[in-house]
Design a protein around this nucleic acid. Sequence first.
DNA 1: CGTGTTCTTGACACTATTCAATGAATGTGG
DNA 2: CCACATTCATTGAATAGTGTCAAGAACACG
Lengths: 246, 246
Amino acid sequence: MEQFTAFSDADRHLLNELLAQNQKHHGAREDIIREGEHSDDIHIVLSGLACRYKILENGTRQIMAFLIPGDPCDAEIFILKEMDHSIGTVTPSLISSVPGHTMKDLLLNRPGIALAFWWSTLQDEGILRERIIDEGRRDARSRIAFLIYEMLLRMRAVGVIDDLRFEFPVTQVDLADATGLTPVHVNRMLQQLREEKLIAIEGRYWTVLDPAGLRKVARFEANYLHLDRAKDQPDSEARDRLKGLI
Amino acid sequence: MEQFTAFSDADRHLLNELLAQNQKHHGAREDIIREGEHSDDIHIVLSGLACRYKILENGTRQIMAFLIPGDPCDAEIFILKEMDHSIGTVTPSLISSVPGHTMKDLLLNRPGIALAFWWSTLQDEGILRERIIDEGRRDARSRIAFLIYEMLLRMRAVGVIDDLRFEFPVTQVDLADATGLTPVHVNRMLQQLREEKLIAIEGRYWTVLDPAGLRKVARFEANYLHLDRAKDQPDSEARDRLKGLI
DNA sequence: CGTGTTCTTGACACTATTCAATGAATGTGG
DNA sequence: CCACATTCATTGAATAGTGTCAAGAACACG
């Protein structure tokens, strides 16, 4: 969160304290909050990998977004009566809860923190819109490439990555649920991307072998992530981490 | 906006005044703000029909959302460097501008109004997520049905509708751009829906002949619109307008 | 070592796209 | 008020891309 807005020391301290207060470990494939439930707390991913998803009447699951460390799951849940989708872990994760009233207080009285949350919400919206384009206008190969490139960038931005290699322990079924394709077709497209030497997969670790090539296949434009703030900040670590990719 | 949160008289008065201050008529098919542009003002649709869209490198357009009266176009634009998508009108529309600094002030100092904007943002996100499901998991016929049912409901909620008949002057190309289908296929699916006596189209006016049937085809679950607040408010006009549909 | 999950492969069906042409409706200028 | 241009809706035929089904291989785990 801190990449795009400079927190005051007081704000940073306050946030650190809040996040430390109420942490909970979740195993893999556990729900953090389910569709239809209400929560007075909001949740933030501290480590691991989670996702927003929805189960449809016919039993299929659609993953709408992956959540990585630093992502708020449901920053404004406390104003809603109930969740319209579920949030669950993919891998074991550490999740922090912040009481809704505290959250409300932050949003109204801590402009710096409020700004960071708004920014996060806007990035979320951008990601969602891009996924609509993804599903509406890109073919299967591009979609998969797009998802991989986006994960690369987001993981870079928060630093949970080793150059071009990152931990992304999803099954092909997960990817199918996230891209709106069938697992069989995901498999074929992944094979293609590997044959083209764009990516490599070793167990839970993915490597982007040819970022420029992958980006081209994905027809990736980074503007929707609004990482430009990071790019412009002279001292930003994030800027360095994203160099050459956006 | 006022359907889901009770504004104080002061808040309502203030908003009315702000919205009245800076209005502009836009013709049909005009851009209100373009991708890559920054604006210090935010925009709100007062009348007409607009849409969020993006033009891709290959020239195709993807419409990501339709905007109807009462919808803020870009409530938090002032914190971003530039828009990641464009907003344009479909029909002649009346658009109000509110200066960003005023907006910031409202968000931080007028909890009632801030709540309404947050709610609006959350509904927006819900609509985007649902569209992802739509494109990922529904077939063409359901997608079209879904879009129509959603417009019916949203127009009902704000009252710009005559029972089951509403003005929705989009071309089949627009619908194709919104659903990620080709115009040819949209045409075929619309014919099917008309043959099934689910809808009727007379020029710019659409009529939902069989709401329950259409809803079934669309596999529509209304929870993502978070209209439940309206449903629960004892005196809500919106509740009556939505009766039987959600 | 057996069991369940995940990945991979092939054959085939089907949905939606592409391309191309026609017709209907609408708008425009003389 | 008509001739013409333009946009929009409709139709048909051929094709590409993805889904479906089914079965075997590789791998992980208790």
